[in-house]
């Protein structure tokens, strides 16, 4: 018994240490955001201030970077989710002999360092531009979207694949049997079934894009995203304004996480209620019979 107690204590201490490691640096950074000292510091705490937030929001480069990041994030979602969806569907249908090669190709971006994805994209499109003379693709934002999408699509594919594998093909057949065309089956049955997974894939794709640095820094050329602006600032020297930015991001994160948790709880409760309703209905299964129960005109006209 005491052995177990000791074990519980050890585990508790270990977890506490682990999460201190995880959160400690962020908390310290958060405190520095509110300290009026010029260098990010906790002590001496020279008085609470919101000044760093004001400086941050009037910093044109940061705001511009943020705009670019948001734009790229949205574009990446628009590319990655449809591409990942197609990738997942094709994986379930492709000829068995081609599947290993196909799988190797589509998951390789997940196992390739981000810098290399950025590098190869830039090299490729530079060459395309040189040989064809089309300048459209040799553009920081376009190439960042393309390079980020190459691996974010793979994330999306893996998420969608997990859900797709639980898809009951008889739903598709039922829709066909009722007269739907293949396009209607896709729109009315498959897409709604995948919608939750597509939502999570979109969120994940946006976040992955928004915080990406390694790929972006190679592909963005002369433009700047929030992360590349930040990287430049941090390397030049640190001001608490950067801590302020981190605090804002963490605050948004926590708010989003709490909102997500609440939505999930509500959804769970709703599902539970439905199940209870279904169970209650079982009792009535045996009562009404069609004959006499329904009005005569039901099918006659």
């Amino acid at each position: 018994m005491t052995g177990q107690l000791v074990n519980r204590w050890l585990i508790g201490i270990y977890l506490a240490g682990f999460f201190t490691y995880l959160f400690g640096p962020l908390i310290v950074m958060g405190i520095t955001a509110f300290n009026s000292s010029n260098y990010p510091a906790v002590v001496p705490f020279e008085g609470a201030t919101l000044e760093w937030f004001r400086i941050l929001l009037s910093d044109g480069e940061v705001v511009q970077g943020l705009r670019t990041s948001l734009l790229i994030g949205v574009l990446v979602v628009c590319v990655s989710v449809p591409v990942g969806l197609a990738g997942a569907i094709v994986l379930t249908q492709i000829h068995a002999r081609a599947r290993p090669l196909y799988y190797l190709v589509v998951v390789s971006p997940v196992l390739t360092p981000g810098v290399i994805i950025g590098i190869s994209t830039v090299i490729f499109w530079r060459d395309v531009t040189q040989t064809t003379g089309i300048r459209m693709f040799y553009d920081g934002i376009v190439m960042t979207v393309l390079s980020q999408s190459s691996f974010i699509s793979a994330y999306c594919m893996l998420i969608l694949l997990a859900r797709l594998q639980r898809f009951d093909r008889s739903l598709e057949e039922a829709a066909l049997d009722l007269g739907a065309t293949h396009a209607q089956v896709f729109r009315d049955v498959l897409l709604p079934f995948l919608r939750p997974a597509m939502l999570s894939a979109s969120v994940l794709a946006f976040l992955a894009s928004f915080e990406n640095y390694n790929t972006t820094t190679f592909a963005i050329l002369a433009d700047k995203t929030l992360t590349t602006v930040l990287a430049g600032r941090v390397r030049q020297g640190s001001t608490p304004a950067i801590s302020a930015l981190a605090v804002m991001i963490v605050a948004i994160t926590v708010a989003a996480a709490v909102a997500y948790e609440i939505l999930k709880r509500r959804d769970d409760a709703r599902r539970k209620a439905r199940k209870a309703a279904a169970a209650a209905e079982e009792g009535r299964d045996l009562t009404p019979v069609v004959v006499g129960g329904a009005p005569q005109s039901a099918m006659a006209d």
């Binding site: 009951d168 008889s170 739903l171 057949e173 039922a174 829709a175 066909l176 049997d177 009722l178 007269g179 739907a180 065309t181 009315d188 049955v189 709604p192 079934f193 919608r195």
Partner: peptide, 19 residues
Amino acid sequence: GPNSRPTALIFQNLALFPM
């Protein structure tokens, strides 16, 4: 194809659309 035949099939697992 099944979508152009005047038949309707009740599947063994019913295959009602959950969404």
